[in-house]
Computed example of a mutant assay.
Amino acid sequence: MIKARIVVTLKNGVLDPQGKAIEGALGNLGFAGVASVRQGKVFDVEIDGEDAETARTHLSDMCDKLLANTVIENYSVEIA
């Protein structure tokens, strides 16, 4: 069993209204000095297989087809 973490974030230049809302809320809660917040998603996936490169290929295919909107999002795959 191979464990992996997929991190999906918005590409630079894509507006992030949720990140802006979090940034404002942190300021209202007294956390000064927060210059910018960008939000994203994290997926922890366990996949059958022994070969990390094959697993990485399958995980990337999952991101391309479902987990990330590659028009506006980037993703990274980390094998544990």
Rank of each mutant, 00 (worst) to 15 (best):
K11Y: 02
T54H: 05
G40P: 08
L15W: 01
H58G: 04
D64G: 00
E23S: 03
A32R: 11
A35K: 07
V71W: 00
K20F: 05
G27D: 07
A68D: 08
V37M: 09
V7D: 06
V8G: 00
L66R: 01
V14T: 11
T54E: 13
G33W: 09
Q18P: 11
V42A: 02
L15F: 09
N28T: 06
T9G: 09
D16H: 02
D61Q: 12
G40Q: 07
Q39L: 14
C63I: 07
I2S: 02
I79F: 07
I2L: 15
S36L: 09
E53S: 13
I6R: 09
V77S: 08
A80K: 07
A4K: 01
L10M: 12
V14G: 11
A52M: 08
K20A: 13
I6C: 07
V34M: 08
V8C: 08
V42K: 04
D48K: 14
E78A: 14
G33S: 05
F31A: 03
D51Y: 00
D51L: 02
F31T: 13
I2P: 08
T57K: 14
Q39G: 08
N69P: 13
F31K: 09
Q39H: 12
D44G: 02
V14E: 11
I2D: 02
G40R: 11
R5T: 14
L59H: 10
R38D: 08
S36F: 00
I2H: 11
E73R: 04
E73N: 04
T57N: 00
E78M: 10
T70V: 15
K11R: 15
C63D: 04
I79H: 05
I22W: 06
L26N: 03
T57F: 00
M1K: 07
V71H: 02
A80I: 10
I72Y: 09
V14H: 10
A35D: 12
T57E: 09
N74G: 10
L15C: 06
L26E: 05
L15A: 14
S36H: 13
M1L: 07
V45E: 02
M1E: 04
A55I: 12
G19K: 10
D61W: 03
V34T: 14
V8A: 06
P17C: 07
L59S: 05
A32W: 00
D51C: 09
V45F: 02
N69M: 12
L67F: 13
G24H: 06
V42H: 02
F43C: 03
L66E: 01
E53M: 13
E50T: 09
T70D: 01
R56Y: 05
E50F: 04
D44N: 15
I72P: 12
N28Y: 01
D61A: 13
S36Q: 13
F31P: 01
A80F: 15
G24P: 00
I6H: 04
G33A: 02
A52Q: 11
I2V: 13
G24M: 07
L29K: 02
L66H: 01
A55Q: 04
L59A: 07
V14I: 15
N74C: 08
L29W: 09
G19Q: 08
A52F: 03
V45S: 06
A52V: 12
E46C: 12
S76P: 03
D48M: 11
V8I: 15
L26V: 05
D61F: 08
D64V: 06
A35T: 12
G49N: 05
I72V: 15
E50I: 00
S76H: 06
H58Q: 14
I79Y: 11
S60E: 11
Q18H: 14
L67Y: 10
